[in-house]
């Protein structure tokens, strides 16, 4: 993945660059708003990571100017401003996701990969079934089969599985699940998500040779192998 990072804080920028490098992504850096906008316009990027508060030109203006001229490159906002209003403003202006500083590397990578996947192969989501590791999800009849055996899921469990499968092989964090499966963005007090995952596991993994939903410690969950 070719990523442009527009960030003025060099320690954050160093961290993001090294994380991306570890995962084998290519990262270019810009440290002011104007420089960033210039770089964004001068090449094709797989994704942009944009800080909100930048010298010379702020992040939201960069995104707005890109969207206004029809550029649909996935954008992840990185910002210390984390209130509801701030998030809404960022998403309304055209960002694909919003990550509040400070953030963990897993969260950043998971979200970056998710927005990239969501937008990269346009038209790919006309699939009517999802299939991975011997598990088959019929998106129309909402029937779930593993090795030919029908598994009955509650609606919420079905959506949880669907989201995990759409991101098969990638880490999804707990807050990504809360946002995408439940539609809420807040800090659930206890291990609410874990309890739902363990219920799902009981249904799709019990009685089979190998588990499909893996826990990634300190990060989240992953469907199938990496």
């Amino acid at each position: 993945m070719k990523v442009l990072l527009i960030e003025d804080d060099s320690s954050v920028a160093d961290f993001v660059t090294s994380e991306l490098a570890v995962k084998g992504h290519n990262c270019e850096r810009a440290s002011t708003g104007t420089e960033g906008l210039l770089a964004a316009n001068s090449a094709r990027w797989d994704a942009l990571i944009v800080d909100r508060m930048l010298p010379k030109l702020d992040g939201l203006s960069i995104i707005k100017s890109l969207r206004d001229k029809g550029d649909l490159t996935p954008v992840l906002i990185l910002s210390a401003l984390g209130e509801v209003d701030d998030r809404v403003k960022g998403l309304q202006i055209g960002a694909d996701d919003y990550l509040v500083k400070p953030f963990s590397s897993e969260e950043l990578m998971a979200r970056l990969e998710a927005i990239h996947r969501r937008l990269a192969p346009l038209g790919a989501d006309f699939r009517t079934t999802l299939e991975a590791e011997g598990l088959r999800l019929d998106l129309i009849s909402q029937e779930v089969r593993r090795a030919g055996r029908i598994i009955v899921l509650q609606p919420r469990e079905y959506r949880l599985l669907e989201y995990l499968m759409r991101n098969a092989g990638k880490i999804v964090t707990r807050s990504m699940l809360l946002e995408n499966v439940w539609g809420y963005h807040f800090d659930p007090q206890t291990n609410v998500i874990d309890v739902h995952i363990s219920r799902l596991r009981q249904k799709i993994d019990r009685g089979f040779d190998y588990p499909l939903v893996h826990t990634v410690r300190g990060a989240g969950y992953r469907f199938g192998d990496e």
Binding site: F15, A80, K101, P102, S104, S105, E106, G218
Partner: peptide
């Protein structure tokens, strides 16, 4: 928050 996160990321 920022240094705390940096600490967390270094641990990772």
């Amino acid at each position: 928050r920022t240094p705390l996160t940096r600490l967390r990321n270094k641990l990772t």
